[in-house]
Computed example of a mutant assay.
Amino acid sequence: MEKILILAALPDKLRLDKEIREIEEAIKRAVKRDSYEIKIRTAVRPQDIRRALAEERPSIVHFCGHGLEDGSLLLEDESGNHKPVLPRGLVLLFRLHTDYVKCVLLNSCYSFDAAEAISQHINYVIGINQPIEDKAAIVFAQGFYDGLGYDNINDQQVIQRAYDEGIVAIELENILQNAVPSLWENGILCSQPIVKVIPVSYSNTKTPESRQQPPPSDDLSSDRGGDYTKLRNFLKAGQWFEADEETLAVMLKVSGRQTEGWLDNTSIENFPKTDLRIIDQLWVESSNGRFGFSVQKKIYIEVGGIANGKYDEDVWDKFRHRVGWKVNGTSIDYSGVIFSTTAPVGHLPAKCCRKMPKDARHSWSNRVVNRIVVRLS
């Protein structure tokens, strides 16, 4: 029997009791209801989460509560006050429980960053890119656990099926708006609904007033006038060289760096996340998960890179070998880049990280990759 561990924290203006009840009822109705056991912890503190994971050894961990814009989950301290827990702490925690935790669902605002980081260690992780209305969070949970309990038809992946059911549930209620529950599988963003939405006003706040509706986010809508049509068309056609050239061109345009012809730290730090994720999603989808910034980010973290902008020759050397930018100890120039799906995973895009000042080639490339890691979070 698989355990579902529900962790509920700080119900300020949230119906966490209703969310928990909907999960319980969904499992009770399920065809496979005898396959799951639900364990619940409420008013959780950091030590409560740590102990609950060790004691229960769950297969699925479901967090419901508030999230902050920096990716933190908001828990309680000993006095019942707000206690933010940063994504780094959550990553370190779940690294200790990879033997049995197979899915983590962070059903809270701004949980995209934490979910992406945790996905480096847990097979399936779901997070949400923006504030989410409380009703939408509850309906998504209801649909997810409905789907979890269905018969597995044609060997469809259970978590993917449950995720799809959750998306359908909130779409049918017409309450998805712009908050996007996204699913990672083994560190790769594999499911992110793209919907046309009607812009809504919202209050952007770092305090847990409510799970609100976020600003609009369309599939190719740039925050700074970038046009991704050509990039999409190149990628769909498998024209990898043209797509790589276009990636740099559109990033320079969005950054206002067309005259310089290369990206500096400031331009990347100020590069809109919406645009960066559009570029990444187009690459990932067109290459079946082989290419893209998020793929490079996963590799960069695996070889010891951290999102702090510091240059580390050893880490950078390992990264270049992994993605094929360095072969048998020798760095390749741009003419040696492989524009084919036979290239190593993470090989592309390449030019945006390799076009740089001549007097700072290696260190500059590393900093570009590092800052993209930060901005993609």
Rank of each mutant, 00 (worst) to 15 (best):
S201I: 10
N204W: 03
T207D: 09
P208C: 01
P208G: 01
S210C: 09
Q212S: 12
Q212F: 09
P215E: 13
P215T: 14
S217A: 12
D218V: 05
D218C: 01
S221F: 04
S222C: 04
S222M: 01
D223C: 00
R224S: 14
R224I: 14
D227H: 08
Y228C: 03
Y228E: 09
K230Q: 14
R232K: 14
R232W: 08
L235C: 09
L235V: 09
A237G: 15
G238M: 07
Q239N: 14
E242G: 07
E246P: 00
L248D: 09
L248I: 04
V250M: 04
L252M: 10
T259G: 07
W262P: 09
D264W: 03
I268E: 05
E269S: 13
K273T: 10
T274Y: 05
L276Q: 11
R277K: 14
I279F: 07
L282K: 13
V284S: 15
V284C: 14
S286M: 07
S286P: 12
F291C: 11
F293S: 11
V295N: 02
K298S: 15
Y300E: 06
G305T: 08
A307F: 05
A307T: 11
G309H: 07
Y311M: 07
W316K: 00
K318H: 06
R320K: 15
R320G: 01
R322D: 02
G324K: 07
W325F: 10
W325R: 03
N328Q: 14
N328L: 14
T330G: 01
I332R: 10
I332N: 05
Y334D: 15
S335G: 12
I338C: 12
T341A: 02
